[in-house]
Each structure stands twice: as structure tokens, then as C-alpha cells.
């Protein structure tokens, strides 16, 4: 007698069980989740504005997920929180706007779940503000330069550069306002400048939009007002908006020396 119909039923049943468990039940529990209103009345997670959405696409196209995770594990799990990668663990609610959520499985580079609000002292290669006045624009430039060639901002990094997100062009007349300020061996030859393409701007906008710091029922913020990361939130958050509306990021002379801003790291 052949047992194959019996085996088939067994296979179907065992598979259906795992299907119910891993496909259906989570959808039942999480499928109806929606944005929640924060104290300020803004929905969380908030809608990513146009540039941020385009940046997410650039992030996906270049497979940043291969080296960067976007998830913070609870306190005591591999030092995620102690390292300054977040003030609380990330939960399903944090990913409602991501298509798909870019959780990641490798950390050749640091976690990016909160890169938009991370203090520069918590960067993989610590960086300090060159000026105390225009920190947001400085961070924007740090990210652009880092994308162009990570060796400039983070010597010893194994991240590849993305020069194809930038244009190298001959300077005609005056140097462009948005050209990267690079000195030393990584600078382009005399008479040339490196100008970010829209993709590079979009990418930095996306990175600066990443934060999971809202007090949630299932992931409350730790008590106590003295939270370094939270302080950083206010500064950068405000300034990010300026960047989103402004056209040129290098306009003010105070923050143009990107090389200067990273010297502490190099000296370390």
C-alpha cells in the first residue's frame, strides 16, 4: 500500500501550522498597527518627505543593508544602547513607514536606526563640531563627505566610497557653493571640484530622517531628563528642517571646513 497520500496530508498540515504561526498570526497582530500621535500631536512614525523617500530608494539600490542594520536591541544586548545607537529598543511600530523595513543582519558598519539624531561623539569615528553655531549643516556635510570617501572622515573604515553619487567638474569662475571642501591627499586636482548629485543629497536627507526615539507604550523611554541622545535630538531635528528647505548647505562660511571638523578623530 502506498503511504504517499498520508505523507502529503502530513506535509500540508505541518506547513499550514507554520504558515499560521509565522505568516498569519503576526499579520493579525501587527497588520492593524497605525501611526500614533506624539505629545506634540505629530504622527509617529511621521511621513518621510520627498527627499527622504528618494534617499531611501538610493539606500536600497546600493544595498547599504549588507553592512548596516537598523534596529536597536534591548539594554544588555550586545551594548547597542550603551554604545549610543539608541535610547530605547526598536519595536514593530518604528517601521510602519519603511518599505520594506531594512532591519539588516550584519554590522560591518554601525547601526543606523537613530543616525538622524546621533551625537557626533557616538559616531564610529568620533567627530566634533568645528563651530558651535551651525552643527546641523556640519553634520550634513560630514555625511556627504563620508559618502564620497569614508577615509576622509573615518580613517580605517572598510566602507566603500560612493563617488558615483557625486560629480567631479572643472571650476569655471568661482567655486560652487555646494562643492565638498576636501583638503589633503583625497582632494581633487587643482581647478576641479566635487559636487554632490541629487542622489547624494537625498541619501543624507534619508539618513537624517532616521530616528526611533518616541516614547511608546511597548517601548518607553528610560526615565530621567539627562539623556545625551535626547539632547542631540532637539538640535539636529530642528536643523534638519532647515536643510530640507534650504537649497545650499555650504552657504555659511563657518562650517565649510569638513576636513577640520574631523581632525579630532584623525588625531585619536
Amino acid at each position: 500500500m502506498s503511504q504517499s497520500p498520508l505523507i502529503f496530508l502530513g506535509l500540508l498540515f505541518s506547513f499550514a501550522l507554520s504558515w499560521m504561526g509565522i505568516v498569519f498570526a503576526p499579520q493579525l497582530q501587527l497588520g492593524r498597527e497605525d501611526a500614533v500621535a506624539t505629545e506634540a500631536g505629530i504622527n509617529y512614525p511621521s511621513v518621510r518627505r520627498t527627499m527622504g523617500n528618494q534617499g531611501e530608494e538610493v539606500y536600497r539600490q546600493n544595498g547599504c543593508i549588507a553592512c548596516h542594520s537598523q534596529q536597536v536591541r534591548p539594554r544588555g544586548y550586545g551594548g547597542d544602547i550603551q554604545r549610543g545607537w539608541g535610547i530605547r529598543r526598536t519595536v514593530a511600530q518604528d517601521y510602519l513607514r519603511d518599505e520594506p523595513p531594512l532591519l539588516g543582519t550584519h554590522r560591518f558598519g554601525p547601526d543606523l536606526a537613530n543616525i538622524g539624531i546621533r551625537g557626533t561623539t557616538n559616531f564610529a569615528s568620533t567627530s566634533a563640531f568645528h563651530s558651535g553655531t551651525n552643527s546641523a549643516a556640519e553634520i550634513f556635510n560630514w555625511h556627504l563627505t563620508h559618502l564620497y570617501n569614508p577615509q576622509i572622515t573615518s580613517p580605517g573604515s572598510i566602507m566603500p566610497g560612493y563617488p558615483y553619487l557625486f560629480t567631479k567638474r572643472q571650476i569655471t569662475g568661482r567655486q560652487s557653493d555646494d562643492a565638498l571642501v576636501i583638503s589633503g591627499s583625497y582632494a581633487p586636482e587643482k581647478g576641479y571640484e566635487i559636487v554632490p548629485r541629487p542622489e547624494a543629497y537625498a541619501m543624507v536627507n534619508y539618513l537624517l530622517s532616521l530616528h526611533s526615539d518616541v516614547d511608546l507604550f511597548e517601548a518607553p523611554l528610560p526615565p530621567g531628563p539627562t539623556n545625551a541622545l535626547k539632547k542631540a535630538t532637539n538640535g539636529v531635528g530642528k536643523a534638519t528642517n532647515n536643510i530640507a528647505t534650504g537649497t545650499s548647505t555650504n552657504a555659511s562660511p563657518g562650517n565649510t571646513n569638513v576636513q577640520g571638523s574631523s581632525t579630532p578623530a584623525a588625531a585619536k
Binding site: N62, I65, C67, Q151, I158, P160, G161, P163, Y164
Partner: peptide, 18 residues
């Protein structure tokens, strides 16, 4: 690419993430 991160960076098609 993991050992020499600067290897052929101009080519988007062979960036590590792809």
C-alpha cells in the same frame, strides 16, 4: 571589496551592497 574598500569604487554595479 571588504579588504580593499577603495577597489573600483567608481563602478556602482560592483559596490559591496550589490
Amino acid at each position: 571589496k571588504l579588504i580593499i574598500p577603495g577597489f573600483w569604487n567608481d563602478c556602482a554595479w560592483i559596490t559591496y551592497g550589490r
